[in-house]
Amino acid sequence: MKIAVASGKGGTGKTTLSTNLASFLAESRETVLADLDVEEPNSGLFIRAEAGGEEDKYKMIPEWDAGKCTLCGICREVCNFNAITQIMDEIMVFPQLCHSCYACSELCPRDALPMKKQKMGVLRYFKQGNLSFVESELDIGEEQAVPLIAQTIAYVDRHCPGDVIKIFDAPPGTSCPVIEATKDADLVILVTEPTPVGLHDLSLAVETMKALKRDFCVVINRDGLGNADVESYCVRENIPVIAKIPNQRSIAEFYSDGKLLYHEISAVKDALEKIIAYIDARPGAGKTEKGAE
């Protein structure tokens, strides 16, 4: 079962919820946590696990073969991303701009632009007891998060059995990276806070999830902080609010040190228990428990 934890904006507690939920689940069963916020991966700061290893992640980009090229200019013309340019009698490729569409490579009449691997980031994996943790980090200057997110999900699919609970810490926002990260999720948990900004960003996330026809629910973080507008919105829109995490300065303090919260704060543990009960009550969740045996 795949559960994506997402939010319309950053800083609502998405990473806090993912890391605490995964660690808590792992106390009783096999759990996978994958950090898909590849531009700013932060889950690893809260997970104390032994490094299992890492692997470079690649995308495919064209590499110019001067010997075969006749400088016909087709490659430059077909590239919609300005990733190819010609300076004197030389073709230059800009890997960070390339979307790996293969048009230049396959339309080159001389086969002078074969596709080659190019590093775009790194994937690391960790193991601690029942918890497997996977994170990917995009190299600075790389502009496209989506291919790395797709490869990270593919890694999880390949290495982790299908009946285990998998928590995906999704990137913030409502654009392509989030769509990629929530694509195959059985359930999306949207984390928000009870403020006007929280409500505005939640409503954008809800629109996105509806457009994607995803099954989703809401967790309210920093409950008690602002007003009740988020809750009335959820009632109006018929969206289940499955748990609330109270607003406490001590939570912010534990977080600032990179500590997990449910050991220290019973209200967080209560909220996690409610979320797990909701997950377990869903169709298909039975399989998950079998995986833990």
């Binding site: 990473t15 700013e40 932060n42 700061l45 809260f46 600075i140 977080y255 600032s256 040190d257 990179g258």
Partner: peptide, 20 residues
């Protein structure tokens, strides 16, 4: 930024970019 592990981590990444 904010004085948290993630705040510092992201400050470093983003200031590297500004430096460029």
């Amino acid at each position: 930024t904010e004085p948290t592990v993630s705040g510092l981590h992201d400050l470093q990444r983003v200031s590297e970019l500004v430096g460029k």
